[in-house]
Design a binder for these strands. Sequence first.
DNA 1: AAATTATAGTTTCATTTGAAACTAATTCAA
DNA 2: TTGAATTAGTTTCAAATGAAACTATAATTT
Lengths: 160, 160
Amino acid sequence: MAKQTPLELDSFLPYRISVLANTISTTLAGAYSQRFDLRIPEWRVLATLGGYPDSSAREVARRTAMDKVAVSRAVSSLMERGRVVSSIDTLDRRRTLLRLSPDGEALLARIVPLAHAYESRLLETLTRQERLQLETLLEKLMQQASLRSSEEVESCSKRS
Amino acid sequence: MAKQTPLELDSFLPYRISVLANTISTTLAGAYSQRFDLRIPEWRVLATLGGYPDSSAREVARRTAMDKVAVSRAVSSLMERGRVVSSIDTLDRRRTLLRLSPDGEALLARIVPLAHAYESRLLETLTRQERLQLETLLEKLMQQASLRSSEEVESCSKRS
DNA sequence: AAATTATAGTTTCATTTGAAACTAATTCAA
DNA sequence: TTGAATTAGTTTCAAATGAAACTATAATTT
């Protein structure tokens, strides 16, 4: 032990969550990325358009918490491969409405089971109760995480 | 609802954890990155060397789950700024032993409270019980996540 | 209705990242 | 012990990412 609590990285929550998330993303992406030639941002757009056809890029960005550049690139790539088709919104010609092509639908239909299987695997060692707890915890953490977290943190550092 | 369960991204666990982790990392990094001219990989190396002086780059990589290239770059940058010093291991001259300089120690001492404050903030809405549950859940999830997750997933996709 | 401001989306450029090749030291095997 | 295989760490190159500038359309102000 050192001066203060020396910050054991292994038990530091932000770090643990980051490692967990990374492991999950990488593992899951590994299951479909090369096989379907689909990177994570594309997968997210695909899944979103599956649920919300005729979204604009902006709407997809909002739903996925991706930034608009990432969405733009993912959409281009999906369109090149014929997985997404677009049409101009006649009411607002700045907007492009996006939807899956039949190919895109088919691809999504193949990946969804993979995704669900992986999710099940993650959850399989949890009891019913623990799954409910997880729900609660994710919600609470997400809420705290996205608060402008600066106040305490800043005041801590102002002096020194 | 569509064909099968259409994969609502908002309730898809891998996605939720990824968004949470991203939000946390970004927020936390925002609190020290520009102020101390320290990026996330550097911060991780710094924190690790604080706890485990005279680690080799390899050891740091293992502890932080970073890859060796990232460690190498972070170490270079920390050394340029005089925050880390190195010495060659006389028993194995391939290895470089790393430790914090006094400056590095001082920097770490300033950031640790910020990190702890942010962690506290994340946890502050959780009851004592929920914190224990979180502990259990993170462990279980991490264990499942890092299993070669392929079996089920692959078998699912082989056909179709 | 002309000029200003705002919004949707793309492109550009600079930075970050990762994989693979590389250098140097060590260990193992014949 | 020489030669092959390992291991530590760095460098190189190509791909991914993000911020800011840019284009085009729409909404607002005067």
